[in-house]
Design a binder for these strands. Structure first.
Lengths: 190, 190
DNA sequence: TGTACATCAGTGAACGCGCGTTCACTGATGTAC
DNA sequence: TGTACATCAGTGAACGCGCGTTCACTGATGTAC
């Protein structure tokens, strides 16, 4: 039954991908390893051929999801004309589509309070990803001195994550949309 | 062993209070009923004399914590001169003290992603509390028309919750403090 | 290159454990007369 | 007001269940000669 090195690596990657989606959609504690492995097309026993423990998987998932978020954001700014990057990022992030697609969405909006309660290693990984996002946003504040741009970017990222998370709590569609819109305004029309 | 009606009511209230703190500090799934009842000075069996299930307790805790947050915020604005209310609220909310006191802090910062994943009943209770907070903040935007004030207040609340939550993920004290400060600036110096 | 053997990805059953919930029981409180 | 009985707050053991983790096993892959 042994698999090729490449096949094994592919399997490992599939587990991380699947976990990344499941965790963001249903939470970390709420996602069991047997459910997760089944979703990846495997049986639970195989998990420990790839990861030392669930905690180790969580760390890897955190890094993976952060990379995905940064990559997505980069793509959005790169495809945009000068001074339009921030608008593209914010419009995509604070969209109803993003609000309704938790499994594919921002890890911070999906797992914010879970991450805040996680261990040091996990939080450090998340914090690193968060700061890469902040730096990316800061680059969009082209007409500000770097320090000021970074400060603005921190507030912008906090607003984006907060507004999306809050919009996911509110079930009334009009109200939820109004929350997203209010944050978009605050960021883009200062 | 039967207790007085008043004693029973006091016990029930103590369970809600204890759960309210434990949930915000460690999460809902992460807080077991036996641990919770022990912290309230009782044994686990007694839980079901007061609540139909853990989910019912969660709803009650959510309402309780929302009330606590609204009351605290009201106190802060009431004790302030005209046009200073918003600053008082924001300075308290986005303080390092609030960041470091999760058990007594804002329910949304403590349980944001957990609430977003909760059932309809719980989310509706949370959304109602959230909107009371928004209304309270909107009252502080005295020089804006009501609709505009409410829209501003929604963004402000989203920023506050987002920034506090993010600041709790980041372990580096200087960086964490900078995040809080950046959000304060964005809200108070527009 | 061919052969013999060690490695290890993946299976599926089993482990102990803590979870939410139920239950029989105790005995003081509340109620009906 | 006094008495008899029903109620029910709280105890502590037990329930089934799903959790993360371990294990013996299979058999194709990788490696050493």
């Amino acid at each position: 039954m042994r698999k090729t090195k490449e096949e094994a690596a592919k399997t490992r990657h599939r587990i991380v991908e699947t976990a990344s989606r499941k965790f963001r959609e249903n939470g970390i504690s709420e996602t069991g390893l047997s459910e997760l492995m089944a979703a990846a097309g495997l049986t639970q026993g195989g998990f420990y051929r790839h990861f030392k423990s669930k905690d180790h998987l969580v760390d890897e998932v955190c890094a993976h999801s952060c990379n995905a978020l940064v990559d997505t954001t980069k793509t959005e700014t790169d495809g945009c004309a000068e001074r339009k990057g921030l608008k593209a990022v914010v419009d995509n992030y604070l969209s109803e589509a993003h609000r309704d697609d938790r499994a594919d969405g921002c890890i911070f909006a999906g797992l914010l309070s879970d991450l805040a309660r996680s261990g040091d290693t996990t939080r450090d990984i998340a914090a690193k990803g968060l700061m890469r996002l902040v730096d990316l946003v800061a680059e969009q504040y082209t007409d500000e001195p770097p320090k000021m741009a970074r400060q603005r970017a921190m507030a912008t990222v906090a607003t984006m994550i907060g507004a999306l998370s809050v919009a996911r709590v509110v079930r009334d569609p009009k109200l939820s949309a109004a929350i997203l819109e209010s944050a978009r305004r605050q960021i883009l029309c200062p």
